[in-house]
Design a protein around this nucleic acid. Structure first.
Lengths: 213, 213
DNA sequence: GTCTATATAGGGATAGAC
DNA sequence: GTCTATCCCTATATAGAC
């Protein structure tokens, strides 16, 4: 494994654990047991490391977004897709820790990140419309506010991890993903038919069981 | 007006505009047209300023929470109460800008802020239960997941401003409050009766009209 | 590629004059 | 109460030896 890749891997772990703003280039080189000068040989500084990690993150997310279009029309298929996206977000969760300051600090990432968010929003919007067309979701006598529903799903994507930390502190990957999915399912539950609601209950039962075990 | 109060007022404005982490004690003294040494005479540093602002914030929010109990049982009354709380959050919005790092940095505030969040959560929980008991909200054939609904409302309280900045950048006070209320109302809409839904539509119409004007 | 040593800059904080 | 001057510390960044 190339040193460059090791640096990225260790930096990502440290960023996720402690927050990008709380780490200096020296901290990273200490954790790597190399000298600061050596670190500067590979990356000009923290900014370049964050930039390289963002390249990885963006490339992967864009692939996942393409998959959405082929994710199918049933709730089960979307459930799986949600799972994969949340897994990915968790892996790069430091980007979602203090987004406002992070984007203010790294202006090069700012525009690209926001564009990604818009794409994700559009993707959710399309998914909700598909589910409506297929009759998987239905308004009943209440009309569905697609825009606000999509907003709320995006809010969960971008801020659920930070919110959970605020309330119960650290969540491991599994609990993060399951609780986020449950939260999104609760959002959609009122518009589901009986079959879908039954499926959701089973998912939830699995989650509750895992939480105790 | 005492200098001490002026310092707090100006600091709050700067924190809200630029973010607490992006300002130094010198920045604040520059804006005040006083010397850094003078600022240090009044407050030992940024930490004490943030602490004093938090005291103000907490005292006010606790008063508002007490009001909740007497907020009444109709949606209209709760709508007004929501409005006041959101107005207050907007006034001290820098606390909600990069919560994770802020609380990590100021450990003295950390526990108290989290306790406040829990109290707010309990207050929302109680409110939802009241609305259910009064029949203002009803599950119909779908059961209501109170815990997740309350979670989602808290998520909006704590992260809506940051989320809006992420998507559309700066919102003024009015648009922040109205969009947050619409978001919460959308959350509750599926469980509302026709009268409540009608009321919500009127609120929303007012908001849409304002947005254009 | 990797190291040590060092230069530079900025923020935090205090002493002491006015 | 307010100012100037100054010091310390930490983070960034580079030069040059190995």
């Amino acid at each position: 494994m190339k040193r460059r890749d090791v640096i990225l891997e260790v930096s990502l772990r440290l960023f996720n654990e402690e927050g990008e703003a709380n780490l200096t280039a020296v901290d990273i080189s200490n954790e790597l047991d190399i000298s600061p000068g050596n670190l500067y040989y590979h990356f000009k500084g923290k900014e370049e490391i964050v930039g390289a990690l963002y390249e990885q993150f963006e490339a992967g997310i864009i692939l996942l977004l393409k998959d959405t279009k082929e994710a199918g029309d049933t709730l089960e298929e979307h459930w799986l897709h949600l799972y994969v996206v949340l897994e990915y977000i968790y892996y790069y969760r430091f980007f979602f820790r203090n987004i406002t300051d992070l984007l203010q600090k790294y202006t090069a990432i700012d525009n690209r990140f926001r564009r990604l968010i818009e794409q994700q929003y559009q993707s959710i919007h399309t998914m909700l419309n598909n589910l409506l067309d297929e009759g998987v979701l239905a308004g009943g006598d209440a009309e569905i506010r697609i825009d606000e529903l999509a907003d709320n799903m995006m809010l969960i994507y971008t801020h659920w991890f930070e919110f959970q930390n605020l309330r119960k502190r650290q969540l491991d990957q599994h609990n993060f993903i399951q609780s986020a999915i449950l939260q999104i399912m609760t959002l959609l539950a009122p518009y589901m038919g009986d079959l879908q609601r039954q499926f959701m209950k089973e998912c939830n039962a699995l989650y509750q069981r895992d939480k105790q075990g």
